[in-house]
Design a protein around this nucleic acid. Structure first.
Length: 573
RNA sequence: CGGGGUGUGGCGCAGUUGGUAGCGCGCCUGGUUUGGGACCAGGAGGUCGAAGGUUCGAGUCCUUUCACCCCGACCA
């Protein structure tokens, strides 16, 4: 490819709005250009990288026995209604109506489509397991796009859907896990495989593949000694017993003229924070229930865990008005002891969820559902009984992980995930069945597996750059060589032209900076910015001994080589 | 969705009390240059986000609206 003919150009000036390095460098290097917020044009240079990533993913998926298909972009809305996801998805569904009034969802993920596709066939147990995947544009009505390609509203995703028996699934899941590790390794990314929340996809467990980066939005914890890795949403930790040797003392109400914070309670009673009850009141818009979360005072409530155990979807804090008028309590003085079972005015049910940490403390203290009154010596079972008891605590850095090591907090970019879906979709959708050995109909046990191609591209740029530009790993570099003749002497141009042809004959992808008007500094700056693995300079100086100057992007030093050796060197990659 | 900010040529920006739009980069032409983003001369390119209003006159004032950026969407 000749630079003189390449559409899209590099830019010397940095945009003011680019917060992440990958965003800035991808725009400056002429890889992408923004359309509107969260929607990008992929320019020729960027598109080559994009398709190289796609090629790597495709090759590994095929090696794993998965089969590529392509599904429609518009999904019949009835399918989403079948699984109830028109209301319960974590992302806002984008909808479209055609001229006949038929409703469609713009695909944001395609579990329903995959099931619908498969049930159109009369599948036998002999056909199982199988795994179909596609590369297709996904639409997400994100509240806020950010970080360039890191969080967008429209992107190409590789999404795979496996069908089989429960026994077969375990193998498929592990196979996809291994395949993903191989893919990201080949792409030059080091990933942490992290247990995560399955959210709107459904199912019981899943893992995210995260590239550690300060630009990432995913927070997770790692226990370096055991390898335990879990997303913040699901991370568990060991809870130490506090004062379990104490005798249970009698429940007692005391006057408490104090502010409404936890700290105020600690000061007033001169008791440890961990002995206080933390009482957090939520309302779930989806199921129209109040949810009162009770936890030990030194911990915080993990809303994701809370939603999981309470079956809630759209949690918000209860308002002060609701607390006073409907629930007969007082902000800052909420207590599970004697808390109303349903809203006095609204009649809406109240669910009390207690964290397991409540069983590590005795004689707790806290509010009494009215202003300026506290209770001392609150004890679970005796004084109150949660409707649900579970782990709803948020892990913090420094806590002891489930395997006994210290939890270290990390931030990263989620480039892929694998989900166990189980029977979730096949239970909800009709005819999602195959015929077993006995001729009986059985439901499929499913999994799904996603990789965001654009985000992976950005993650590579985040992981491999310096202040001058990107350093593309060999496998995804848009070209292997940046060929830059300096000056306009016929000697130089002839040598560069001939090297260009010879490199191409040797199968080396070359970006040939044939711009006569461009000066050396410009060519060097562009070479660094675009970040191809090798830069070859042709100049009168180098040609004095019939040599060419070769420099690797990651190296400071260049070397002078004869043509044959130049070709040998760069073709080896 | 809440709060704050910004919309002027491809990019980055200036534009005074309202008086008919400018700078740098980039682009085009010619010339001088040529190993880390050169210099000289000439040139093209703008419904000032959009709509409405006030005014003799609006980039500037008023109203409405749209887009984009940042922060937040949480512990009583």
């Amino acid at each position: 490819m000749r630079v003189s003919q390449l559409f899209g150009r590099t830019s010397k000036t940095e945009g003011a709005d680019y917060k992440s390095p990958s965003h800035r460098l991808l725009v400056q290097g002429g890889f992408v250009r923004e359309s509107t917020a969260g929607r990008y044009y992929m320019l020729p240079l960027g598109q080559v990288v994009h398709s190289k990533i796609t090629d790597v993913v495709r090759r590994h998926m095929n090696d794993a026995g998965a089969q590529e298909v392509l599904m429609p972009t518009l999904h019949p809305l009835e399918l989403w209604a079948e699984t109830n996801r028109t209301t319960t998805t974590g992302f806002e569904l984008m909808k479209i109506t055609d001229r006949r009034g038929a409703d469609f969802a713009l695909g944001g993920t395609a579990e329903e489509m995959a099931v619908d596709l498969v049930r159109k066939f009369n599948v036998s147990y002999k056909d199982l397991p199988f795994n179909v995947y596609q590369f297709s544009m996904k639409f997400r009505d994100e509240m806020r796009a950010r970080g360039g390609l890191l969080r967008v509203r429209e992107f190409v995703m590789k999404d795979a859907y496996s069908f089989g028996t429960e026994v077969q699934f375990k193998e498929t899941y592990q196979q996809m896990w291994d395949t993903y590790v191989a893919i990201f390794t080949e792409l030059g990314l080091k990933v942490d495989v992290v247990a995560a929340d399955n959210g709107y996809i459904g199912g019981e467990y899943c893992h995210e593949f995260i590239v550690e980066s300060d630009q990432g939005e995913s927070r997770y914890f790692i226990d370096e000694t055991s390898g335990y890795a879990a997303h913040e949403d699901v991370a568990t930790f060991k809870v130490d017993d506090k004062n379990m040797d104490e005798e249970l003392r009698d429940l007692q109400e005391v006057e408490a003229v104090r502010g409404t914070t936890m700290e105020d309670g600690v000061k007033l009673h001169n008791l440890p924070l961990w002995q206080q009850t933390k009482d957090v009141l939520f309302f779930d818009e989806a199921t129209k229930r109040y949810i009162l979360a009770i936890i030990r005072g030194d911990f915080d409530v993990n809303e994701t865990k809370l939603m999981q155990v309470a079956g809630a979807w759209e949690l918000r804090s209860a308002t002060e008005e609701e607390i006073r008028e409907d629930l007969d309590s007082e902000p800052g003085f909420i207590s599970p002891v004697g808390f109303v079972k349903k809203g006095r005015k609204s009649g809406r049910p109240v669910v009390i969820v207690g964290d397991k940490s409540l069983r590590t403390v005795r004689n707790m203290y806290g509010g009494n559902n009215k202003k300026s009154a506290d209770l001392l010596n609150i004890n679970i079972d005796r004084d109150y009984k949660p409707d649900i008891e579970a782990d709803i605590a948020l892990a913090q850095p420094g806590f002891t992980g489930p395997d006994g090591g210290v939890l270290v907090e990390k931030k990263g970019i989620e480039v892929g995930n694998i989900f166990q879906l189980g029977y979730h979709y096949t239970n909800l959708m009709h005819d999602a069945e195959y015929t077993d050995e006995q001729g009986k109909r059985q439901k499929y046990y499913m999994g799904c597996y996603g990789i965001g191609i654009g985000r992976t591209l950005a993650a590579i740029a985040e992981a491999h750059h310096d202040d001058k530009g990107i350093l593309w790993p060999d496998n995804v570099a848009p070209y292997a060589v940046y060929l830059a003749p300096l000056g306009e002497s016929e000697n130089v141009l002839a040598a560069a032209d001939s090297l260009y042809e010879d490199l191409r004959k040797a199968g080396v992808a070359v970006l040939y900076d044939d711009r006569n008007a461009a000066r050396a500094g410009e060519k060097f700056a562009d070479a660094d910015l675009i970040g191809l693995p090798y830069r070859i300079v042709v100049s009168d100086r180098s040609l004095q001994n019939g040599q060419f100057e070769v420099k690797h992007r990651s190296s400071q030093e260049a070397q002078l080589l004869e043509k044959d050796n130049v070709i040998k060197m760069v073709a080896a990659k």
